[in-house]
Amino acid sequence: MTYQSAIPTRPDTLEQPASQFDSLAQQHQADTLGMWVFLASEILFFGGMFMAYTVYRTAFPAAFEAASGHLNLGLGGINTAILLTSSLTMTLADDAVVARNRRATAIWLALTALLGTIFLAIKGIEWREEFREQLAPLFGRPFVFPEPHTDQARLFFSFYFALTGLHALHLLIGVVLVLVMLIFTLRDAPHLDAKVIIAGLYWHLVDLIWVFVFPLLYLAARHG
């Protein structure tokens, strides 16, 4: 891909590896491997909760399907589309930084952060809706759900808030990370390509986790 009026990033020759490394290549490989190891750890982190959710989903299929029906599938679907698009813009940012194009990098990063923020805003709207409908069993608030599934539905919504909350926290960290990358890009920081690509890895993982969260929670009622 070529960009018009590209502002190039600083050339590699100006960059030195950190003192513990022998070469830039070694440093970049270490950084990338480090992020992958971290992502493996993250997968196990969410995996524990997916596991617990699946146990109860299997134990109480009827209640979980009924409770899942109370989620806003429309907003959830829109959010899924937004997050998938953000992964595309992040990939384009990766692409641009590899092509040493600072302007394009900055634009795609800004778009990515924007999409992430919109996702969080929509998530907030959904949560407010659920609070209004008294579907949030948090802080000792009343939980209203028709019999006979009240107790198990409370369990479902416990998982719903725990999972979407943890995911939103991760996404928030992701947005901040992407904004930091944006600042780095504008300042033409050293090792820019490695930094952006590693931030991208994290972003894709948070996206990927949503790809599991969405069907587990929203589509439980609609599996036919």
């Binding site: 109480f60 009827a62 209640a63 006979p148 599934h149 107790d151 198990q152």
Partner: peptide
């Protein structure tokens, strides 16, 4: 089974 049927009959 009896216990569950009394406490969570819908299951």
């Amino acid at each position: 089974y009896l216990r569950d049927s009394i406490l969570a009959p819908e299951q």
